[in-house]
C-alpha cells in the first residue's frame, strides 16, 4: 500500500496528518495487517482532551484488543462514526476512510518524536 507523504508515524504504529491546528489520527497499514480483521472500534467522546501518547480509543480484531495512542495532544473535535458500523474500514483503507478521530492541536511539541514515511518504513525493517 502506498503511504501518503503528508503523514507522520509513531513507534506505536499510529499515523497523524497535521493541517493547520487540526490533526487526524489513524493506525498504520502495518498495524491493521498485524491485527487482522477489525470488528470493533471504541471511539472517545467529542470534547475530550488527550495528551500525546495517551490511549484514546481501542481497536479490536477477531482475536486481539489493542489501544490506540495519540500522536499529538489535542481536544477531540470529530470522531469517525462510520467505524461504529463498519470497523473494517480500518483494514481496507487505513490512511483514508479508515481514519479514527480529529483533534484540535493543543500542544505540538511531541511532533519532534514523529517519523516521516521513509523513517517509519526503516523503523519497520529494523
Amino acid at each position: 500500500m502506498s503511504v501518503p507523504t503528508d503523514l507522520k508515524f509513531t513507534k506505536e504504529h499510529e499515523w497523524v496528518r497535521i493541517e493547520g491546528d487540526t490533526a487526524t489520527f489513524g493506525i498504520s497499514d502495518h498495524a491493521q495487517e498485524a491485527l487482522g480483521d477489525i470488528v470493533f472500534v471504541e471511539l472517545p467522546e467529542v470534547g475530550r482532551s488527550i495528551d500525546a501518547g495517551e490511549a484514546y480509543g481501542v481497536v479490536e480484531s477477531v482475536k486481539a484488543v489493542s489501544d490506540t495512542y495519540a500522536p499529538v495532544a489535542g481536544e477531540v473535535i470529530e470522531i469517525n462514526e462510520a467505524l461504529e458500523s463498519e470497523a473494517d474500514l480500518v483494514n481496507s483503507d487505513p490512511y483514508g476512510v479508515g481514519w479514527i478521530i480529529k483533534v484540535k492541536i493543543s500542544d505540538n511539541n511531541a511532533e519532534t518524536e514523529l517519523m516521516n514515511p521513509e523513517e517509519y518504513t526503516e523503523f519497520l525493517d529494523e
Binding site: 487482522g36 480483521d37 470488528v39 477477531v62 482475536k63 473494517d88
Partner: peptide
C-alpha cells in the same frame, strides 16, 4: 494455522 491469507472473517 490461526488464519490463512484472506483472514478469519472471510
Amino acid at each position: 494455522p490461526v488464519q490463512y491469507s484472506n483472514g478469519a472473517l472471510k
